[in-house]
Design a binder for these strands. Structure first.
Length: 502
RNA sequence: GGUGGUGUAGCUCAGCUGGUUAGAGCACGGCACUCAUAAUGCCGGGGUCGGCGGUUCAAGUCCGCCCACCACUACCA
Protein backbone atom coordinates (compact mmCIF):
# COMPACT_ATOMS: atom_id res chain seq x y z
CA UNK A 1 0.00 0.00 0.00
CA UNK A 2 1.52 3.35 -0.99
CA UNK A 3 2.11 5.79 1.87
CA UNK A 4 1.79 9.54 2.10
CA UNK A 5 2.86 11.82 4.92
CA UNK A 6 1.65 15.42 5.00
CA UNK A 7 2.16 18.10 7.62
CA UNK A 8 1.09 21.57 8.57
CA UNK A 9 3.28 23.80 10.67
CA UNK A 10 2.68 23.62 14.38
CA UNK A 11 0.79 26.77 15.19
CA UNK A 12 2.02 29.12 17.85
CA UNK A 13 -0.50 29.22 20.66
CA UNK A 14 0.17 32.85 21.46
CA UNK A 15 -2.16 33.71 18.57
CA UNK A 16 -5.82 33.09 17.86
CA UNK A 17 -6.57 30.79 14.92
CA UNK A 18 -7.10 32.87 11.79
CA UNK A 19 -7.63 32.34 8.10
CA UNK A 20 -3.94 31.67 7.51
CA UNK A 21 -3.94 28.70 9.86
CA UNK A 22 -7.12 27.35 8.32
CA UNK A 23 -5.73 27.80 4.82
CA UNK A 24 -2.50 25.88 5.36
CA UNK A 25 -4.28 23.01 7.06
CA UNK A 26 -7.04 22.94 4.46
CA UNK A 27 -4.55 22.37 1.65
CA UNK A 28 -2.95 19.53 3.58
CA UNK A 29 -6.37 18.09 4.40
CA UNK A 30 -7.55 18.05 0.80
CA UNK A 31 -4.41 16.30 -0.36
CA UNK A 32 -4.62 13.84 2.54
CA UNK A 33 -8.24 13.02 1.70
CA UNK A 34 -7.38 12.64 -1.96
CA UNK A 35 -4.56 10.23 -1.22
CA UNK A 36 -6.83 8.14 0.98
CA UNK A 37 -9.41 8.01 -1.83
CA UNK A 38 -6.58 6.90 -4.07
CA UNK A 39 -5.76 3.99 -1.80
CA UNK A 40 -2.85 5.46 0.10
CA UNK A 41 -2.10 4.95 3.73
CA UNK A 42 -1.91 8.52 5.01
CA UNK A 43 -0.37 10.22 7.99
CA UNK A 44 -1.64 13.81 8.17
CA UNK A 45 -0.08 15.75 11.01
CA UNK A 46 -0.86 19.10 12.58
CA UNK A 47 -0.36 20.53 16.05
CA UNK A 48 0.67 23.40 18.23
CA UNK A 49 3.91 25.04 19.21
CA UNK A 50 3.76 25.85 22.88
CA UNK A 51 7.19 26.92 24.06
CA UNK A 52 9.05 30.22 24.14
CA UNK A 53 9.34 33.44 25.97
CA UNK A 54 6.12 34.90 24.65
CA UNK A 55 4.07 32.00 25.99
CA UNK A 56 5.95 32.06 29.28
CA UNK A 57 5.18 35.72 29.65
CA UNK A 58 1.57 35.45 28.54
CA UNK A 59 1.03 32.70 31.09
CA UNK A 60 2.63 34.83 33.75
CA UNK A 61 0.39 37.77 32.84
CA UNK A 62 -2.62 35.49 33.03
CA UNK A 63 -1.46 34.25 36.43
CA UNK A 64 -1.25 30.71 35.16
CA UNK A 65 1.27 27.95 35.07
CA UNK A 66 2.66 27.78 31.51
CA UNK A 67 1.47 24.22 31.02
CA UNK A 68 -2.03 25.02 32.22
CA UNK A 69 -1.99 28.09 30.02
CA UNK A 70 -1.02 26.18 26.89
CA UNK A 71 -3.47 23.39 27.71
CA UNK A 72 -6.14 26.06 27.59
CA UNK A 73 -5.11 28.14 24.59
CA UNK A 74 -4.07 25.25 22.36
CA UNK A 75 -7.66 24.05 22.56
CA UNK A 76 -8.68 26.72 20.07
CA UNK A 77 -6.51 25.04 17.45
CA UNK A 78 -7.93 21.61 18.16
CA UNK A 79 -11.39 23.15 17.86
CA UNK A 80 -10.43 24.63 14.51
CA UNK A 81 -9.68 21.22 13.06
CA UNK A 82 -13.20 20.14 13.97
CA UNK A 83 -14.84 23.28 12.60
CA UNK A 84 -12.94 23.02 9.32
CA UNK A 85 -13.48 19.29 9.00
CA UNK A 86 -9.78 18.46 8.95
CA UNK A 87 -8.95 14.79 8.86
CA UNK A 88 -5.60 14.93 10.63
CA UNK A 89 -4.37 11.61 11.94
CA UNK A 90 -2.46 13.17 14.80
CA UNK A 91 -2.22 16.42 16.70
CA UNK A 92 1.13 17.05 18.27
CA UNK A 93 1.95 19.49 21.06
CA UNK A 94 5.54 20.48 21.72
CA UNK A 95 4.94 20.29 25.46
CA UNK A 96 4.43 16.53 25.28
CA UNK A 97 7.03 14.36 26.97
CA UNK A 98 7.78 12.44 23.80
CA UNK A 99 8.64 15.68 22.07
CA UNK A 100 11.01 16.75 24.80
CA UNK A 101 12.76 13.40 24.49
CA UNK A 102 12.96 13.62 20.70
CA UNK A 103 14.44 17.12 20.85
CA UNK A 104 17.00 16.09 23.39
CA UNK A 105 17.96 13.01 21.41
CA UNK A 106 18.33 15.07 18.24
CA UNK A 107 20.48 17.54 20.16
CA UNK A 108 22.69 14.76 21.45
CA UNK A 109 23.21 13.31 18.01
CA UNK A 110 24.10 16.69 16.60
CA UNK A 111 26.48 17.29 19.48
CA UNK A 112 28.11 13.88 19.04
CA UNK A 113 28.70 14.64 15.41
CA UNK A 114 30.35 17.93 16.25
CA UNK A 115 27.54 20.07 14.87
CA UNK A 116 26.98 22.09 18.03
CA UNK A 117 29.33 24.48 19.83
CA UNK A 118 28.94 26.86 22.74
CA UNK A 119 29.32 30.54 21.96
CA UNK A 120 27.80 33.86 22.83
CA UNK A 121 24.93 35.65 21.26
CA UNK A 122 24.67 39.39 21.49
CA UNK A 123 22.77 42.10 19.79
CA UNK A 124 19.90 44.53 19.98
CA UNK A 125 17.02 42.67 21.53
CA UNK A 126 13.34 43.50 21.77
CA UNK A 127 11.68 41.68 24.64
CA UNK A 128 8.25 42.28 23.18
CA UNK A 129 9.17 40.65 19.87
CA UNK A 130 11.43 38.07 21.45
CA UNK A 131 13.88 38.88 18.69
CA UNK A 132 17.26 40.35 17.95
CA UNK A 133 17.61 43.07 15.34
CA UNK A 134 20.47 44.38 13.26
CA UNK A 135 21.56 47.96 13.82
CA UNK A 136 20.43 48.90 10.31
CA UNK A 137 16.89 47.86 11.14
CA UNK A 138 16.59 50.16 14.13
CA UNK A 139 15.29 53.67 14.40
CA UNK A 140 16.25 56.02 17.21
CA UNK A 141 14.00 58.50 19.01
CA UNK A 142 14.98 60.45 22.13
CA UNK A 143 18.05 58.29 22.65
CA UNK A 144 16.03 55.07 22.63
CA UNK A 145 16.36 52.57 19.78
CA UNK A 146 13.26 50.89 18.39
CA UNK A 147 12.71 47.79 16.28
CA UNK A 148 10.71 48.01 13.02
CA UNK A 149 7.77 46.68 15.01
CA UNK A 150 7.93 49.69 17.27
CA UNK A 151 9.19 47.72 20.25
CA UNK A 152 12.11 49.23 22.19
CA UNK A 153 15.36 47.31 22.04
CA UNK A 154 18.28 46.90 24.43
CA UNK A 155 21.81 45.54 24.04
CA UNK A 156 21.87 42.00 25.35
CA UNK A 157 24.60 39.42 25.63
CA UNK A 158 23.96 35.82 26.55
CA UNK A 159 25.70 32.51 26.15
CA UNK A 160 24.21 30.36 23.46
CA UNK A 161 24.82 27.11 21.66
CA UNK A 162 25.21 27.30 17.93
CA UNK A 163 24.41 24.86 15.18
CA UNK A 164 27.14 24.75 12.53
CA UNK A 165 24.84 25.82 9.72
CA UNK A 166 27.64 27.56 7.83
CA UNK A 167 29.36 24.34 6.93
CA UNK A 168 26.19 22.96 5.33
CA UNK A 169 25.96 25.58 2.63
CA UNK A 170 27.46 23.46 -0.15
CA UNK A 171 25.65 20.33 0.94
CA UNK A 172 22.35 22.19 0.86
CA UNK A 173 23.00 23.57 -2.61
CA UNK A 174 23.83 20.08 -3.81
CA UNK A 175 20.65 18.82 -2.20
CA UNK A 176 18.51 21.47 -3.94
CA UNK A 177 20.20 20.66 -7.19
CA UNK A 178 19.60 16.94 -6.84
CA UNK A 179 16.00 17.49 -5.73
CA UNK A 180 14.55 20.17 -8.01
CA UNK A 181 11.06 19.72 -6.56
CA UNK A 182 12.12 20.05 -2.95
CA UNK A 183 11.02 23.68 -2.74
CA UNK A 184 7.83 24.82 -4.42
CA UNK A 185 6.66 26.99 -6.06
CA UNK A 186 9.70 27.49 -8.29
CA UNK A 187 9.99 31.18 -7.52
CA UNK A 188 10.41 30.37 -3.83
CA UNK A 189 13.02 27.82 -4.69
CA UNK A 190 15.00 30.48 -6.51
CA UNK A 191 14.78 32.76 -3.51
CA UNK A 192 16.03 30.12 -1.13
CA UNK A 193 18.91 29.13 -3.37
CA UNK A 194 19.92 32.76 -3.81
CA UNK A 195 19.82 33.16 -0.07
CA UNK A 196 21.96 30.12 0.63
CA UNK A 197 24.45 31.15 -2.04
CA UNK A 198 24.76 34.44 -0.20
CA UNK A 199 26.37 32.59 2.67
CA UNK A 200 25.09 31.02 5.87
CA UNK A 201 26.02 31.86 9.42
CA UNK A 202 25.88 29.50 12.34
CA UNK A 203 22.54 29.40 14.04
CA UNK A 204 21.85 30.23 17.65
CA UNK A 205 19.81 27.34 19.02
CA UNK A 206 19.58 27.94 22.75
CA UNK A 207 18.60 30.65 25.22
CA UNK A 208 19.26 31.30 28.88
CA UNK A 209 16.88 34.24 29.11
CA UNK A 210 13.77 32.17 29.71
CA UNK A 211 12.89 28.71 31.01
CA UNK A 212 9.79 27.61 29.09
CA UNK A 213 11.28 25.20 26.62
CA UNK A 214 13.12 21.92 26.23
CA UNK A 215 16.21 21.85 28.47
CA UNK A 216 19.50 21.39 26.67
CA UNK A 217 20.97 17.99 27.58
CA UNK A 218 23.85 18.43 29.96
CA UNK A 219 23.39 22.16 30.44
CA UNK A 220 20.25 23.03 32.35
CA UNK A 221 20.95 26.74 32.11
CA UNK A 222 19.82 26.58 28.49
CA UNK A 223 16.57 25.75 26.78
CA UNK A 224 16.35 25.07 23.06
CA UNK A 225 15.44 28.06 20.98
CA UNK A 226 12.69 28.08 18.43
CA UNK A 227 13.50 26.09 15.35
CA UNK A 228 15.36 23.15 16.76
CA UNK A 229 12.40 22.62 19.05
CA UNK A 230 9.64 23.46 16.59
CA UNK A 231 10.79 21.63 13.47
CA UNK A 232 11.53 18.47 15.39
CA UNK A 233 7.80 17.98 15.93
CA UNK A 234 7.56 16.39 12.50
CA UNK A 235 9.66 13.42 13.52
CA UNK A 236 8.47 13.29 17.11
CA UNK A 237 4.97 12.66 15.88
CA UNK A 238 6.19 9.74 13.76
CA UNK A 239 7.73 8.09 16.76
CA UNK A 240 11.35 9.14 16.42
CA UNK A 241 13.78 8.21 17.93
CA UNK A 242 12.17 4.90 18.86
CA UNK A 243 11.32 4.48 15.16
CA UNK A 244 8.19 2.44 15.80
CA UNK A 245 5.34 1.64 13.43
CA UNK A 246 4.64 5.23 12.33
CA UNK A 247 8.25 5.91 11.44
CA UNK A 248 7.64 4.25 8.09
CA UNK A 249 5.92 7.44 7.00
CA UNK A 250 9.15 9.43 7.09
CA UNK A 251 10.31 11.28 5.07
CA UNK A 252 7.30 13.56 4.81
CA UNK A 253 5.98 14.02 1.30
CA UNK A 254 4.93 17.64 1.71
CA UNK A 255 5.46 20.11 4.50
CA UNK A 256 2.81 22.77 3.89
CA UNK A 257 3.99 26.14 5.19
CA UNK A 258 3.28 29.82 4.80
CA UNK A 259 5.86 31.75 2.85
CA UNK A 260 7.03 33.48 6.03
CA UNK A 261 8.51 30.29 7.43
CA UNK A 262 9.79 28.77 4.22
CA UNK A 263 13.42 29.47 4.96
CA UNK A 264 13.36 27.61 8.22
CA UNK A 265 11.83 24.58 6.58
CA UNK A 266 13.91 24.69 3.42
CA UNK A 267 17.28 25.51 4.96
CA UNK A 268 17.49 24.79 8.68
CA UNK A 269 15.38 21.66 8.65
CA UNK A 270 17.19 19.66 5.98
CA UNK A 271 20.48 20.83 7.48
CA UNK A 272 19.47 19.59 10.95
CA UNK A 273 18.34 16.28 9.54
CA UNK A 274 21.34 15.67 7.34
CA UNK A 275 23.61 16.67 10.21
CA UNK A 276 21.90 14.10 12.42
CA UNK A 277 22.09 11.43 9.73
CA UNK A 278 18.37 11.49 8.98
CA UNK A 279 16.59 11.81 5.68
CA UNK A 280 15.24 15.25 4.70
CA UNK A 281 11.58 15.68 3.68
CA UNK A 282 10.61 15.35 0.04
CA UNK A 283 9.04 18.74 -0.43
CA UNK A 284 8.31 22.03 1.27
CA UNK A 285 5.49 24.00 -0.30
CA UNK A 286 5.17 27.68 0.59
CA UNK A 287 1.78 29.20 0.00
CA UNK A 288 0.90 32.89 -0.14
CA UNK A 289 -1.03 35.29 2.04
CA UNK A 290 -4.57 36.53 1.97
CA UNK A 291 -5.59 40.15 1.94
CA UNK A 292 -9.04 41.13 3.18
CA UNK A 293 -11.02 43.10 0.59
CA UNK A 294 -7.77 44.32 -0.88
CA UNK A 295 -6.27 45.34 2.45
CA UNK A 296 -3.30 43.80 4.16
CA UNK A 297 -4.47 41.82 7.18
CA UNK A 298 -3.12 42.86 10.55
CA UNK A 299 -4.15 42.76 14.13
CA UNK A 300 -3.75 46.51 14.44
CA UNK A 301 -6.08 47.13 11.51
CA UNK A 302 -8.56 44.79 13.17
CA UNK A 303 -9.38 43.02 9.89
CA UNK A 304 -8.25 39.55 10.85
CA UNK A 305 -10.50 36.91 9.28
CA UNK A 306 -11.92 34.41 11.74
CA UNK A 307 -12.47 31.07 10.00
CA UNK A 308 -15.06 29.98 12.54
CA UNK A 309 -17.23 33.02 11.85
CA UNK A 310 -16.78 32.49 8.14
CA UNK A 311 -17.99 28.91 8.32
CA UNK A 312 -20.97 29.94 10.42
CA UNK A 313 -21.95 32.52 7.85
CA UNK A 314 -21.34 30.71 4.57
CA UNK A 315 -21.17 27.04 5.46
CA UNK A 316 -18.07 24.89 5.60
CA UNK A 317 -17.87 23.51 2.09
CA UNK A 318 -18.32 26.80 0.23
CA UNK A 319 -15.51 28.24 2.32
CA UNK A 320 -13.25 25.26 1.70
CA UNK A 321 -14.02 25.44 -2.01
CA UNK A 322 -13.47 29.15 -2.27
CA UNK A 323 -10.11 29.18 -0.50
CA UNK A 324 -8.62 26.67 -2.89
CA UNK A 325 -10.45 27.78 -6.04
CA UNK A 326 -10.02 31.52 -5.94
CA UNK A 327 -6.25 31.79 -5.86
CA UNK A 328 -3.46 29.72 -7.41
CA UNK A 329 -1.94 27.90 -4.47
CA UNK A 330 1.40 29.53 -3.79
CA UNK A 331 0.36 33.03 -4.76
CA UNK A 332 -1.07 35.78 -2.63
CA UNK A 333 -4.79 36.35 -3.00
CA UNK A 334 -7.60 38.57 -1.93
CA UNK A 335 -10.48 37.46 0.23
CA UNK A 336 -13.47 39.39 -1.07
CA UNK A 337 -16.97 38.67 0.08
CA UNK A 338 -18.30 39.34 -3.40
CA UNK A 339 -15.92 36.79 -4.86
CA UNK A 340 -16.96 34.16 -2.31
CA UNK A 341 -20.63 34.82 -3.08
CA UNK A 342 -19.95 34.62 -6.80
CA UNK A 343 -18.16 31.29 -6.52
CA UNK A 344 -20.82 29.86 -4.25
CA UNK A 345 -23.77 30.93 -6.34
CA UNK A 346 -22.30 30.81 -9.83
CA UNK A 347 -20.24 27.64 -9.59
CA UNK A 348 -21.42 25.52 -6.68
CA UNK A 349 -25.15 26.22 -6.85
CA UNK A 350 -25.67 27.00 -10.55
CA UNK A 351 -23.12 24.87 -12.38
CA UNK A 352 -22.88 21.85 -10.10
CA UNK A 353 -25.81 21.85 -7.68
CA UNK A 354 -28.39 22.67 -10.31
CA UNK A 355 -26.96 20.07 -12.66
CA UNK A 356 -27.37 17.40 -10.01
CA UNK A 357 -30.83 18.59 -9.14
CA UNK A 358 -32.20 18.69 -12.69
CA UNK A 359 -30.66 15.34 -13.59
CA UNK A 360 -31.94 13.56 -10.50
CA UNK A 361 -35.37 15.10 -10.86
CA UNK A 362 -35.60 13.79 -14.42
CA UNK A 363 -34.57 10.30 -13.33
CA UNK A 364 -37.00 10.36 -10.42
CA UNK A 365 -39.91 11.42 -12.62
CA UNK A 366 -39.18 9.49 -15.77
CA UNK A 367 -37.31 6.38 -14.71
CA UNK A 368 -39.26 5.60 -11.56
CA UNK A 369 -36.25 6.61 -9.50
CA UNK A 370 -34.16 3.72 -10.79
CA UNK A 371 -30.83 3.99 -12.55
CA UNK A 372 -31.04 3.22 -16.30
CA UNK A 373 -28.82 0.71 -18.06
CA UNK A 374 -25.14 1.63 -18.29
CA UNK A 375 -24.38 3.65 -21.42
CA UNK A 376 -21.01 4.56 -22.92
CA UNK A 377 -20.02 8.22 -22.61
CA UNK A 378 -20.23 10.39 -25.72
CA UNK A 379 -18.88 13.53 -27.26
CA UNK A 380 -17.42 16.47 -25.43
CA UNK A 381 -18.77 15.25 -22.11
CA UNK A 382 -17.03 11.93 -22.58
CA UNK A 383 -13.78 13.73 -23.34
CA UNK A 384 -14.10 16.02 -20.33
CA UNK A 385 -14.64 13.04 -18.08
CA UNK A 386 -12.04 10.76 -19.57
CA UNK A 387 -9.12 10.52 -17.24
CA UNK A 388 -10.47 13.30 -15.04
CA UNK A 389 -9.43 11.58 -11.80
CA UNK A 390 -5.93 11.10 -13.19
CA UNK A 391 -5.69 14.74 -14.25
CA UNK A 392 -6.96 15.93 -10.90
CA UNK A 393 -4.47 13.66 -9.17
CA UNK A 394 -1.62 15.03 -11.26
CA UNK A 395 -2.57 18.58 -10.32
CA UNK A 396 -2.82 17.70 -6.67
CA UNK A 397 0.57 16.01 -6.73
CA UNK A 398 1.91 19.43 -7.67
CA UNK A 399 -0.34 21.21 -5.16
CA UNK A 400 -2.22 22.92 -8.01
CA UNK A 401 -5.53 22.91 -6.19
CA UNK A 402 -7.06 25.64 -8.34
CA UNK A 403 -6.21 23.79 -11.56
CA UNK A 404 -7.70 20.59 -10.18
CA UNK A 405 -10.95 22.42 -9.46
CA UNK A 406 -10.85 24.16 -12.81
CA UNK A 407 -10.63 20.81 -14.57
CA UNK A 408 -13.48 19.40 -12.50
CA UNK A 409 -15.74 22.33 -13.24
CA UNK A 410 -14.91 22.26 -16.93
CA UNK A 411 -16.34 18.75 -16.88
CA UNK A 412 -19.42 19.99 -14.99
CA UNK A 413 -19.93 22.65 -17.66
CA UNK A 414 -19.60 20.00 -20.35
CA UNK A 415 -22.35 18.04 -18.60
CA UNK A 416 -24.58 21.12 -18.70
CA UNK A 417 -23.91 21.44 -22.43
CA UNK A 418 -24.77 17.77 -22.85
CA UNK A 419 -28.10 17.96 -21.04
CA UNK A 420 -29.11 21.11 -22.90
CA UNK A 421 -28.18 19.69 -26.29
CA UNK A 422 -29.71 16.27 -25.70
CA UNK A 423 -32.81 17.68 -23.98
CA UNK A 424 -33.95 14.49 -22.25
CA UNK A 425 -37.19 16.25 -21.26
CA UNK A 426 -38.06 16.36 -24.97
CA UNK A 427 -36.80 12.82 -25.65
CA UNK A 428 -39.27 11.58 -23.09
CA UNK A 429 -41.99 11.86 -25.74
CA UNK A 430 -40.01 11.17 -28.90
CA UNK A 431 -37.45 8.55 -27.88
CA UNK A 432 -37.66 7.23 -24.31
CA UNK A 433 -34.83 4.77 -24.86
CA UNK A 434 -32.50 7.57 -25.88
CA UNK A 435 -33.68 9.60 -22.90
CA UNK A 436 -32.59 6.78 -20.61
CA UNK A 437 -29.17 6.70 -22.24
CA UNK A 438 -28.68 10.44 -21.77
CA UNK A 439 -29.80 10.37 -18.16
CA UNK A 440 -27.49 7.49 -17.43
CA UNK A 441 -24.59 9.39 -18.99
CA UNK A 442 -25.37 12.38 -16.83
CA UNK A 443 -25.64 10.24 -13.74
CA UNK A 444 -22.26 8.73 -14.48
CA UNK A 445 -20.83 12.20 -14.92
CA UNK A 446 -22.23 13.33 -11.58
CA UNK A 447 -20.81 10.30 -9.89
CA UNK A 448 -17.34 11.11 -11.18
CA UNK A 449 -17.70 14.75 -10.16
CA UNK A 450 -18.98 13.85 -6.72
CA UNK A 451 -16.21 11.33 -6.21
CA UNK A 452 -13.31 13.58 -7.12
CA UNK A 453 -14.78 16.53 -5.22
CA UNK A 454 -15.03 14.62 -1.94
CA UNK A 455 -11.66 15.83 -0.64
CA UNK A 456 -12.62 19.45 -1.24
CA UNK A 457 -16.19 19.34 0.07
CA UNK A 458 -16.57 16.14 2.08
CA UNK A 459 -19.94 16.89 3.66
CA UNK A 460 -21.79 18.10 0.60
CA UNK A 461 -20.33 15.46 -1.69
CA UNK A 462 -21.40 12.74 0.72
CA UNK A 463 -24.93 14.10 0.35
CA UNK A 464 -24.60 14.24 -3.39
CA UNK A 465 -23.36 10.67 -3.62
CA UNK A 466 -26.21 9.64 -1.32
CA UNK A 467 -28.70 11.25 -3.70
CA UNK A 468 -27.00 9.53 -6.62
CA UNK A 469 -27.43 6.20 -4.86
CA UNK A 470 -23.70 5.47 -4.72
CA UNK A 471 -23.07 3.00 -1.88
CA UNK A 472 -20.60 4.01 0.80
CA UNK A 473 -18.12 1.37 -0.29
CA UNK A 474 -18.14 2.57 -3.90
CA UNK A 475 -16.84 6.07 -3.39
CA UNK A 476 -13.10 5.61 -3.79
CA UNK A 477 -11.36 6.49 -7.05
CA UNK A 478 -10.87 2.83 -7.91
CA UNK A 479 -14.62 2.21 -7.57
CA UNK A 480 -15.23 4.42 -10.60
CA UNK A 481 -14.02 1.58 -12.80
CA UNK A 482 -17.15 -0.41 -11.98
CA UNK A 483 -20.45 1.07 -13.22
CA UNK A 484 -23.30 1.13 -10.74
CA UNK A 485 -25.76 -1.66 -11.52
CA UNK A 486 -28.89 -0.91 -13.52
CA UNK A 487 -31.89 -0.35 -11.29
CA UNK A 488 -29.91 1.17 -8.42
CA UNK A 489 -32.34 3.25 -6.39
CA UNK A 490 -31.81 6.99 -6.72
CA UNK A 491 -32.23 9.09 -3.61
CA UNK A 492 -34.58 12.02 -3.32
CA UNK A 493 -33.12 15.07 -5.05
CA UNK A 494 -32.69 18.15 -2.86
CA UNK A 495 -30.62 21.28 -3.43
CA UNK A 496 -27.02 20.74 -2.35
CA UNK A 497 -25.87 24.35 -2.13
CA UNK A 498 -27.77 27.25 -0.74
CA UNK A 499 -27.33 30.50 -2.55
CA UNK A 500 -26.01 33.46 -0.64
CA UNK A 501 -27.46 36.93 -1.06
CA UNK A 502 -24.92 39.24 -2.62
C1' G B 1 21.30 49.03 -3.88
C1' G B 2 21.54 43.55 -5.22
C1' U B 3 18.85 39.10 -6.98
C1' G B 4 14.44 37.03 -9.04
C1' G B 5 9.68 37.89 -11.14
C1' U B 6 5.34 40.30 -13.23
C1' G B 7 2.93 43.88 -16.75
C1' U B 8 -2.32 40.15 -22.43
C1' A B 9 -10.23 41.85 -23.05
C1' G B 10 -13.96 46.04 -17.55
C1' C B 11 -12.01 42.15 -13.56
C1' U B 12 -8.89 37.56 -12.45
C1' C B 13 -5.76 35.13 -15.48
C1' A B 14 -3.99 31.03 -19.65
C1' G B 15 -0.97 31.44 -23.85
C1' C B 16 5.23 24.93 -24.43
C1' U B 17 10.70 25.15 -27.57
C1' G B 18 8.49 32.38 -32.42
C1' G B 19 4.05 30.71 -37.51
C1' U B 20 -3.51 30.10 -39.52
C1' U B 21 -8.84 35.26 -37.68
C1' A B 22 -4.72 36.16 -29.41
C1' G B 23 -8.05 32.34 -25.50
C1' A B 24 -10.93 30.94 -20.51
C1' G B 25 -14.01 32.22 -16.30
C1' C B 26 -16.59 36.33 -14.36
C1' A B 27 -19.08 40.99 -15.84
C1' C B 28 -22.02 43.16 -20.07
C1' G B 29 -25.70 42.73 -24.63
C1' G B 30 -28.93 39.58 -27.65
C1' C B 31 -31.23 34.81 -28.70
C1' A B 32 -32.88 29.75 -27.45
C1' C B 33 -34.90 26.39 -23.96
C1' U B 34 -38.31 25.42 -19.93
C1' C B 35 -36.12 19.24 -16.91
C1' A B 36 -33.82 22.33 -12.94
C1' U B 37 -31.83 26.18 -6.98
C1' A B 38 -35.27 32.77 -12.18
C1' A B 39 -31.06 27.58 -13.21
C1' U B 40 -28.74 26.05 -18.39
C1' G B 41 -27.06 26.58 -23.47
C1' C B 42 -25.76 29.44 -27.91
C1' C B 43 -24.11 33.97 -30.27
C1' G B 44 -21.85 38.75 -29.70
C1' G B 45 -19.34 43.41 -28.29
C1' G B 46 -14.57 44.52 -26.24
C1' G B 47 -7.58 43.73 -26.41
C1' U B 48 -1.76 49.54 -29.78
C1' C B 49 -0.61 41.72 -25.98
C1' G B 50 3.39 48.26 -20.48
C1' G B 51 6.57 51.75 -23.93
C1' C B 52 10.64 52.41 -27.59
C1' G B 53 14.13 50.11 -30.76
C1' G B 54 16.13 45.57 -32.92
C1' U B 55 16.67 40.20 -34.93
C1' U B 56 13.54 37.32 -38.46
C1' C B 57 10.01 35.60 -44.32
C1' A B 58 7.20 35.80 -39.53
C1' A B 59 7.24 38.13 -32.33
C1' G B 60 2.59 38.57 -26.47
C1' U B 61 6.24 34.50 -27.78
C1' C B 62 13.66 36.04 -28.90
C1' C B 63 17.49 40.49 -27.85
C1' G B 64 18.54 45.64 -25.84
C1' C B 65 16.92 49.96 -23.33
C1' C B 66 13.07 52.45 -20.54
C1' C B 67 8.60 52.75 -17.25
C1' A B 68 5.42 50.57 -13.43
C1' C B 69 4.44 46.96 -9.81
C1' C B 70 5.74 42.62 -6.67
C1' A B 71 8.86 39.08 -3.96
C1' C B 72 13.49 37.87 -1.41
C1' U B 73 17.72 40.26 0.89
C1' A B 74 18.86 35.51 8.31
C1' C B 75 17.85 33.78 13.27
C1' C B 76 10.34 37.69 13.81
C1' A B 77 7.61 29.78 16.28
Amino acid sequence: MPRTCLTTPIYYVNDRPHIGHAYTSLAADVLARWKRLDGHEVFFLTGTDEHGQKVEKAAQDAGEDPQAFTDRVSQAFRDLTAVMGFSNDAFIRTTEGRHRRACQELWKRLAERGEIRLGGYEGWYAVRDEAFYGLDELTERDGVKYAPSGAPVEWVTEPSYFFALSKWQDRLLQFYDANPDFIAPATRRNEVIAFVKGGLQDLSISRTSFRWGVPVPGDDAHVMYVWLDALTNYITALGWPEEGADWRFWPADVHFVGKDILRFHAIYWPAFLMAAGLEPPRRVFAHGWWTNEGQKISKSLGNVIDPVALVEQFGLDPVRYFLLREVPFGQDGDFARAALVNRTNGELADVLGNLANRTLTLIAKNCAGALPTPAPPEGALGEALAGLPARVGAHLDRQEFHLALEAIFAAARAANVHITEQAPWALRKTDPARMAVVLRQLHDALRVLGTVLQPFMPGTMALMLDQLGVPGDARALAALDAPLPEGTAIGTPAPLFRKVEA
